[in-house]
Design a protein around this nucleic acid. Structure first.
Ligand SMILES: [Mn+2]
Ligand SMILES: [Mn+2]
Ligand SMILES: [Mn+2]
Ligand SMILES: [Mn+2]
Lengths: 223, 223
DNA sequence: GGATATATTTTGACAGTTCAAAATAAATCC
DNA sequence: GGATTTATTTTGAACTGTCAAAATATATCC
């Protein structure tokens, strides 16, 4: 069985690989995602390569093998279903559940996973809008516009918040920016780096372009 | 924070200490409960003693300190609440949940534990009838009669099954011997080492004295 | 009470995961 | 295109948790 460390390396490698067109993950990015020094990542990646879970291309980065990807998707599925359980059933704060799931993802068996999935009604996304990998190992990688890039004035629906930090999630929640909620961009001032939003029946408020870029949206029908 | 290994050592030390009048746990018992060789247990107990979690009495055994007992009770509480959740909410087989809880007990935070406890309605015992330690750190250590020792003919209620092995639990369940169910001892043949039971509207069946000793019962009012 | 059996401890080793710091390769910049 | 910056790898060490096997202490049995 994969150890907790191995599962963490593979899961983070998958998340980084998804955001890179060729699937090559630079060693430094993996190291900082895992909060280890670069030398540690090199050592571990060589061990993972020996186990056939990744391919190491020295000085260039690493790639998941199909087996490594399979393990990583299973861990990610556990992570996101656990988050969904903690929010939907235990009514925990969506800002806290990431840290909880970081541990629980390694302790849940596939049997428990299946039951949780059924209890939750086979959800497609977690509380942050992150897609939940299917049992068969497919991962919805649809890309949306963000509050930093979308059209202004038109009504929008939040679909995903791509920042797991508790501070950012608490800020987003305080302004009603959860997946499913609606809003409009009333102004975007590039020189100032500011986006101004308005929620239905709410006061306008501003956030930075960089923060806006972490909130994914789609056009909403109702205003 | 205590590591997974430390939590396992402390939890098993607590369980063994509860079954010994003076609270002294022999090294060999701890080692075999944890499935490690005796030398490993000695090494680890010395490390635990350095951390102030146990007192090591060389060649005699070990004792939990108040702090060690506090940690152990918290782990045991997690274990038993998780088992209760898996059976009551996820509808898992009571024979499987021990193995699951063995992992989950180390991954659940106190925050999740509290929510789980509330969701389950603050249960006093787990699916096997094992008492759940309270948040304040008290553990009900009531001792009952067993099917090997109780009065014959009188109606009984099963209160606890003190064997976590899947085989035994599956056997017990197949004969309707779960906490809350009722039965009568119709015969006890000491030379043969057999106890014969009868459940309401069921056929009589036999089990060994040693197996009977693992099923705790109390007098039931209704027959 | 001395021989023998049993329980415990000690010693030396190993696997896995990590860091600090030095070495090296690759990329970037005049 | 040679110097400098940046990313990666290597080296040496530490820590945790484990085992095998030898050493030692304690208990038990004539
Ligand atoms: Mn994790
Ligand atoms: Mn999430
Ligand atoms: Mn455990
Ligand atoms: Mn139990």
């Amino acid at each position: 069985m994969a150890t907790i460390a191995v599962e963490n390396y593979l899961k983070h490698a998958l998340l980084l690989a998804e955001r890179s067109p060729d699937g090559l993950v630079p060693m430094g990015e993996l190291a900082s995602a895992l909060a280890v020094v670069p030398g540690t990542a090199t050592t571990m990646v060589k061990a993972l390569a020996d186990s056939g879970l990744v391919v190491h291309e020295p000085r260039r980065g690493l790639r998941l093998t199909p087996e490594g990807r399979r393990v990583a998707l299973n861990v990610l599925r556990k992570h996101r279903l656990v988050e969904t359980f903690l929010v939907n059933v235990l009514k925990m704060d969506w800002a806290q559940v990431h840290a909880e799931a970081e541990q629980l993802e390694h302790a849940i068996s596939d049997a428990v996973l299946d039951r949780l999935d059924a209890l939750l009604g086979h959800p497609a996304t977690d509380p942050h809008g992150d897609p939940i990998p299917s049992v068969e190992g497919t991962l919805n990688s649809a890309v949306y516009a963000t509050l930093a890039t979308c059209a202004t004035e038109a009504p929008l629906r939040v679909v995903r918040v791509t920042d797991q930090s508790a501070d950012f999630l608490t800020f987003a929640e305080a302004h009603g920016l959860r997946p499913g909620t609606t809003a409009r961009v009333v102004d975007r001032n590039l020189p100032a780096g500011l986006v101004t939003l308005r929620r239905p029946r709410g006061k306008p408020f501003a956030l930075s372009l960089s923060a806006a870029g972490r909130i994914w949206v789609e056009p909403a029908d109702s205003p």
